[in-house]
Design a protein around this nucleic acid. Structure first.
Lengths: 165, 165
DNA sequence: GACACGTGAACAAGGCTCAGTTCATCGAGG
DNA sequence: CCTCGATGAACTGAGCCTTGTTCACGTGTC
């Protein structure tokens, strides 16, 4: 799907004309640009996070010729998918179908609340409950915890680079 | 920046209220979900492409305990930044500043046309022209071409998998 | 409609990201 | 305001993605 097709689908979703949908999409994309360019991380909970990542200078390779080429240090845009995006992509969670704006608010509210929300939630906590009950039972859990606390305090060369983001 | 802050900025950009901005953003995100879930690749030229990528089953590791864990085959959402997004993130290109909707259309049209568009364009083609003139001159260019043409025709195991997207 | 630019494919090697788990904090939505 | 879920940090090793270049096709904008 390309941008034009996406705008059509978006217009249907918004119940608007294509021009409005275009404006909406462009505004979103441009604002994402603005945030990332500023070096700020944009987290859209569930969907994912856009951020600027720094890349050190290195010697890369032109795969076609095998020639080495020096790549200067630079910054690249990165996106990390959020939990919800991952869940629906993997099929662990379903998205509500929204055809048009008029039906959207009503269908969204009821669909989100009743069926989709309950089914996956029932699945997720079951896993966690079992994990916790297992972890809570034996003594090694306390050991694992103790081992973890000092590890955090240890100086990590990688941590500062990430915290800059 | 989180979602609420983004919505504020978006509202300013759209010249709308926050509710409208919220609707816009949610519509965009939900439509991205819908496309990716369908297994379709969404290409927003310049910004980037969202797609679903398949992951084979593998034995992963819990880094904390070193314990191996079997990860089932699954699908994950992926984003690949487009050329424009890369260019503005690296600083090779500047984005037009858009404060509010009223000023947006006029400022966008003029800003996009006159200063920002011309400066980077002048930079880009210069690079390409030189690359082409170099390539066109020597005989090895023809060889490289000849070698390339058959390579494309050769059956590639990777190509079909990607074309499915 | 026209033009300019973006995208994808192919190549080899190196760098980057992520898998699970736990816990604390934060954010979003009702 | 409250509750629930998302996020991030830390851990190691394996798998994935990207780097440049060229060319042809497709897309988007004016």
């Amino acid at each position: 799907m390309n941008k034009a097709q996406f705008i059509e689908a978006l217009a249907a979703r918004l119940g608007s004309d294509k021009k409005t949908a275009t404006t909406s999409l462009d505004a979103v994309l441009d604002e994402i640009y603005a945030v990332v360019v500023k070096g700020e991380k944009l987290t859209l909970t569930g969907f994912g996070a856009f951020e600027k990542r720094d890349r050190a200078a290195r010697i890369a390779r032109n795969p076609a010729t095998g020639a080495s080429v020096r790549v200067k240090k630079t910054s690249v845009p990165a996106f990390r998918a959020g939990a919800e995006f991952k869940a629906i992509t993997s099929g662990a969670k379903k998205i509500a179908k929204v055809p048009a704006k008029k039906a959207a608010p009503a269908a969204k509210a009821s669909a989100a609340k009743a069926p989709a929300a309950k089914a996956p939630v029932a699945k997720a906590p079951a896993k966690r409950v079992s994990a916790r009950s297992v972890a809570a039972k034996p003594a090694p859990a306390a050991k694992a915890r103790a081992a973890k606390a000092p590890a955090k305090k240890a100086p990590v060369k990688r941590a500062p680079a990430k915290r800059a983001g």
